[in-house]
Amino acid sequence: MSKIDELLKNEKVEWKKLGEVSNCFAGGTPNTTVKSYYDGDIPWIRSGEINFNVITKSERYITIEGLENSSAKLIRPNSVVLAMTGATVGRSGVVEFATACNQSIAAIESDEKIVNYKYLYYFISSKYNFIKNLGQGALTSLNLSIIKNLEIPIPSIETQEKIVKALDKFTNYVTELQAELQARTKQYEYYRDMLLSEEYLNKLSNNPEILGGGYSLKVTTLGEITKIKNGKDWKALGNGNIPVYGSGGKMNVFVDKYSYNKPTVLIPRKGSIDNVFYIEEPFWNVDTIFYTEIDDKKIIPKYLYYFIENYDMDKLSTDSTRPSLTQSILNKLRIDLPPIEIQNKIVEILDKFQSLLADTKGLLPKEIELRQKQYEYYREKLLSFDR
């Protein structure tokens, strides 16, 4: 007999409606035109913050005045929240701090003598598809009546706590893996930002151990060190092995001609303008993305890639509705250029970080996916009770 079977052996379960064992209510939104209602000390969560997670902080805050002059109510710590409308409808989460919420959220404060809040969360999250399909209307919205009538199995508190302890092990491990992935990414971004900063490059220029010291940064523009080229449609080309790139990257299209066959940086013209690419292989690019013919006597192509990846390209956008770049704007982009030897050193360091990050992104997401599936399997086993 497995540990799970042993845990649930002879366990008596009573099915109850959620409204019988918890206090369910919706939140509210203070008048958005009254400034004194916002940026206070009271956390105020919205449905977009709910994603099968333990919510540790809110994105927005309201004042006591805003709380008192709206239908918003405080949710006690250790409660479950459930999105009732919008893109996240049916998703649930846990709040372990006192907070308010808007009207698109149902707060569920369980009777702790009957239902462990974390057990309740795990059960509700396991029924996501079922709950979502209970939604009504064009927006697939839930209401408090639907939520209060949800039936949940209630074993003893001791069994609930054992189930929570078992499932917490899986979710905590997934959380740790996700945190590790974020930490590696932030570490790379920190060193990239530092190494490419004007302050750091000037500091290097005064170090006598580097190129004898005394060199100065050259202030140049993108137009002085590259030629920015437009892309073209690929549909008239024949099939081949040359990848086609758009603003989102490779398009899963391969043709028999290339636009360019030397190291280059691709810069989107429309859409995701901060989504730059470094390419060394022959390629074809469509008209939503530029390629660059780089003067490698002045700047190392990979250095240019790191510089542009680090730059806030949104500042150069000519369209507030759909991010857009033009050649004339890009040509004026200011670059502080150190000597080639320094560029090489910086590229060498950042390449190592990129390699470590690539390994992390290759391994950790697979491990996270595996652990997530393992968690869902055991959650299903632990929360399946006969009526």
Rank of each mutant, 00 (worst) to 15 (best):
L8R: 12
L8C: 13
K12T: 14
W15G: 05
L18H: 02
G19K: 01
C24P: 15
F25D: 14
G27C: 02
N51E: 08
E59W: 06
I64D: 15
N69V: 01
S70K: 09
S71P: 01
I75D: 00
M84H: 05
A87R: 03
T88P: 04
V89R: 10
A98G: 12
Q103W: 08
S104I: 04
I105M: 09
A107C: 07
I108F: 02
E112H: 08
E112Q: 07
I114P: 01
V115A: 04
K118Q: 05
F123T: 12
Q136I: 14
G137P: 07
A138Q: 13
N149F: 09
N149T: 07
K162D: 08
I163M: 01
T175M: 10
Y188A: 01
E189V: 10
Y190C: 00
L201M: 14
N202V: 13
I210H: 15
S216Q: 13
T220D: 08
L222C: 05
L222H: 06
Y245D: 03
S247G: 13
S247N: 10
V255D: 14
Y260S: 11
T264I: 05
T264R: 04
I273R: 00
D274C: 14
P282V: 02
D287S: 02
I289V: 15
I294Q: 14
I300C: 11
Y303P: 12
S317L: 06
S320F: 07
S328W: 12
P339T: 15
V347S: 06
L350G: 05
D351P: 14
Q354K: 15
T360P: 10
L370D: 09
D386K: 15
